[in-house]
Design a binder for these strands. Structure first.
Lengths: 333, 333
DNA sequence: CTGTTAGCGCGTTCAC
DNA sequence: GTGAACGCGCTAACAG
């Protein structure tokens, strides 16, 4: 492997000059710049990134910490992050937190040790205080999917409360009043917010929130199955006509339970989901759901870093709006 | 940030000794080892990975190149790779190839430049020759989802041909003889192999493969939609009773077309998919499909590296077998 | 505009 | 068992 030294020899210049042309430093005459460039590709020279990082204290890498890698949620986000960063020759190191405080902290340490220039975090178990503290450290961080007032400019998030409101509001506009709810894990911020939105929509039409009609799921298909099984037990005494699930995967699980029992969807029961994952429009019935622009949020996190860390000139906005996508899983009572 | 020098000062030993205890070198007396350890955590010392990499020429990182990050396929794979490697304190750098030769090569270069100790590649556009050549280089590679004879010990793959055979064979055992096929992209190796398996099953019962009953999809829901739309046009003259799709996503798209036209599934048409993605068991009807242990293959790739590169003592096997998962989307004629 | 010279933090011979 | 010294490949003043 050729080194910068070899290049300097072949080009007949000093190490520093070679370094200058690599780093697009303007103070190099076009003539010597060409000599160096020629020498470089004659030698097939590739800079050693470790040496660069060691000397410059900049790794051109960003760590991305997500809760999980499987499921339909994080893939699109990661894809956009990778693509945006890659364009600027930054690379991404991934780590998984599993929604567990210890593992999340451990992953942060791990990424920090790896010398990441910055961290993109989608964490839920760790405390606000921890993150605020972390943000005061030398490595800048961006939060996806979480809002913390003290560091709000570092937060890229969806108005989950509004989304939850829209889901239930839609059912209400269709005449539903007895609406069950399968929520996400109570420890997840977005799950809490979506539920709050649901309650707000209910209270707007003076319907009391009934805890017996609310089940805490896990954001997975199984959670939908469990939730629906539970709700169906309640139904004889609490005849709800619609169910909103805090994400599409749970809708899918919930509907599968209904179909197995011979119910017709949406005739017997209306459903509204959340996230608008790709499957939502191919499943039967096609899911009415709330769109979550997760890929855009991933991209925005990457752009935020490019702007604030690598000084690119880019427009950034932090907050994203949910949108109702009306399809076939919900109908008027 | 404390350096190795600070530790050596506090412990009253030399730099070399500190380095020795870090690298578990045995030639250190227990007494001085303790002094060093104490000094380390007193200072909150963390080794600088760049300096380590530069000096040792080993980065403890592996590059993972996949075709795409979204969709239900690569998430589980990435998850297992990350988990297995992380346990050994290796980190993973991801890159995306988009099934395009230029981008795949570019990504390989990118990862190589990043000083990865090894590469895990799930590539399809790049030629066998390129990969064989790459395997001769200083950085070792593992291939997921692809078999190349000359470097077979580096290949972790599924018996796709057998899987394709099993899918169609299942339908045949149910009495179907006129079976349509929606394949994956012709440029993808696994798509080709699955189709070959399909043809083998057909020929076993002396049924001629009818090109008019075969559609090249894209492995996405849209491909299933397009494929089914096409096939339905053929049906008046070619009355097939079953469809096998080269993956579950396309089944989902295909079924949605049928349902929209008022057909009943599986009564009017049987379906068999491939991959057994999580959704397959929650969709209606529940998908009969061929299980693809993609997460195990991811894990195996990571273990292979641990064994062959980092000298861990691990059992490894390269080839995985598909398994038919019978559910509800296919019934006897 | 270009060259010289220190480091960056750590691994690794060598002596002792 | 331990320490001194050099080198990994590159960046960043500083000097000219």
């Amino acid at each position: 492997m050729a080194t910068i030294y070899d290049v300097s020899q072949l080009a007949g210049v000093s190490l520093a000059t070679v370094s200058r042309v690599m780093n697009k430093n303007t103070n190099v005459s076009e003539k010597t710049r060409q000599k160096v460039l020629d020498a470089m590709d004659k030698l097939g020279y590739r800079p050693n990134t470790f040496a660069q990082s060691l000397a410059s204290n900049c790794s051109n890498s960003v760590g991305v910490l997500v809760s999980q890698l499987d499921g339909p949620y994080y893939g699109p986000m990661m894809a956009e992050i990778e693509a945006s960063l890659r364009l600027e020759n930054k690379h991404v190191i991934i780590a998984v937190g599993h929604s567990d405080a210890a593992q999340e902290k451990d992953s942060v340490e791990f990424l920090l040790d790896r010398g990441c220039d910055a961290l993109i975090l989608d964490v839920e178990a760790v405390s606000d205080e921890y993150l605020i503290n972390l943000s005061k450290g030398p490595t800048s961080i961006v939060l996806i999917n979480r809002y913390i007032e003290q560091i709000n400019e570092r937060c890229i998030y969806l108005e989950n409360e509004l989304g939850g409101y829209m889901a239930t509001r839609h059912l209400i506009s269709q005449g539903h009043r007895n609406i069950a709810y399968i929520s996400g894990p109570a420890k997840k911020h977005d799950a809490i917010e979506r539920l709050v939105g649901h309650k707000r929509a209910l209270s707007e039409v003076n319907v009391d929130f009934d805890p017996a009609l609310c089940f805490e799921g896990d954001y997975r298909e199984e959670g939908g199955v469990d939730g629906m099984t539970y709700l169906l037990q309640q139904r004889p005494t609490k005849p709800f006509t619609a169910v909103v699930c805090a994400n599409d995967q749970m809708v899918s699980g919930a509907i599968s339970v209904c179909l197995e029992r011979g119910m017709y969807i949406p005739q017997d029961l209306s459903f509204v989901g959340f996230d608008n994952i790709p499957f939502a429009r191919y499943v039967s019935p096609k899911l009415t759901t709330v769109n979550n622009p997760i890929h855009e949020m991933g991209k925005m996190a990457a752009l935020w870093l490019l702007k604030n860390l690598y000084n690119k000139n880019i427009e950034v906005n932090n907050v994203f709006m949910p949108e109702l996508v009306e399809r076939e899983s919900s109908i008027p009572v």
